[in-house]
């Protein structure tokens, strides 16, 4: 168990380095304009430009620039936004993180519960119209752009049908911290959760069904039936439990990507001040340090989360535990 663990850690360190280098290169070595101008923002004065050049070492070789940037991002954490009058970027991201985690966490619960239900039912009733309709619903879910779905939901719940009993409880757009008002937090997030979950319900239920159907031909499923177990027990305890291995690894990747900024579009349409919306604001202001910081932190988060998932995998799949 120790060897695969160490190997995984080594891989993680390598990917972390690679990803920081990649993000750095995208932002500062893309052929085109001077990075100084990009950081300083539009119409910056020559003094500011000079200051930026010194601060980031843009007059020195690339590796030095890279080291400077990493130091400012992760060690001194004093990367400042020029567009936003010297606002420190890293604390801003840390303040926004709980919003994103609330949004993605709730959506994840919804999509796990619904996709497992839908996928399992579809697999159990394979070939029937119920199976076909569930899978078609899933496909439609995959095909809807999340930001558009959010807008349409807003139109219905905030405007057109807001005065009916069905949606009169819906609060205005925005976020309520859990610590302040748990019920308000729930009411503010339930619709964004559902909207964010739609696509993933589609993906996961379809993946799960395909997995369960493929498993049905496996020898151990036949053994389970030959033991005299009920079809439900065979499907759930043997089929579903085995499918969970792929399910969890997929989930880990998606969850990490969403927390790391993938929920940006949902945050924007629902006015939730999370990391994604921070990125969006930075985007509209062309606030390069902020964007780079969010991307860098997200990527680091995703890499670390993937490592955690892989370690979780060791516990879920006894075969991986002592393999290799």
């Amino acid at each position: 168990m120790i060897v695969p663990l160490l190997r995984r850690l080594g891989q993680t360190a390598f990917v972390l380095f690679g990803i920081s280098a990649l993000v750095f290169l995208v932002f500062f070595a893309t052929p085109g304009a001077d990075p100084t101008a990009r950081i300083a923002g539009r119409n910056a004065s020559p003094q500011t430009m000079e200051k930026v050049r010194k601060e980031y070492g843009f007059d020195r070789p690339l590796p030095v620039q890279y080291a400077t940037m990493m130091k400012k991002l992760f060690i001194t954490q004093d990367l400042a936004s020029y567009v936003d009058r010297g606002e420190l970027v890293v604390p801003e991201i840390i303040r926004a993180a709980p919003v994103t985690v609330s949004l993605v966490g709730g959506a994840a619960l919804i999509w796990i519960a619904l996709s497992i239900t839908m996928g399992t039912i579809a697999a159990a009733l394979k070939g029937t119209w119920i199976d076909r309709s569930l899978m078609m619903i899933g496909l439609v879910g995959i095909s809807i752009p999340v930001f558009w779905l959010g807008q349409v939901t807003n139109l219905i719940t905030q405007s057109r049908y807001h005065d009916t009993w069905l949606f009169s409880w819906v609060p205005g757009l925005g976020y309520v911290p859990l610590t302040e008002n748990p019920w308000g937090w729930f009411k503010a997030l339930i619709i964004p959760w559902a909207v964010l979950a739609v696509m993933f319900i589609g993906i996961y239920s379809r993946v799960l069904r395909a997995d369960l159907v493929a498993l049905a031909g496996e020898d151990f499923m036949r053994t389970a039936r030959a033991k005299g177990l009920s079809p439900t027990r065979v499907l759930l305890r043997h089929g579903l439990r085995t499918s969970m291995i792929t399910f969890v690894s997929l989930f880990g990747l998606d969850f990490a990507q969403l927390v790391g900024g993938g929920a940006l579009l949902t945050e924007v349409v629902f006015g939730l001040p999370g990391v994604g919306r921070l990125t969006y604001q930075a985007l509209t202001n062309l606030d390069l340090p902020l964007i780079m910081a969010t991307v860098m932190y997200s990527a680091v988060f995703v890499v670390l989360a993937n490592a955690v998932v892989d370690i979780l995998y060791l516990f879920l799949d006894p075969r991986v535990r002592d393999a290799r």
Binding site: V15, F27, G32, R38, G262
Partner: peptide, 27 residues
Amino acid sequence: DIMWAVPVYLFAISLSIVTVSQGLHIG
């Protein structure tokens, strides 16, 4: 692996933001 670790939309946003203001100058 490395490209995989950056959320797709963030990756696309990063690439877009550096090209959207001034375009791309390669030689």
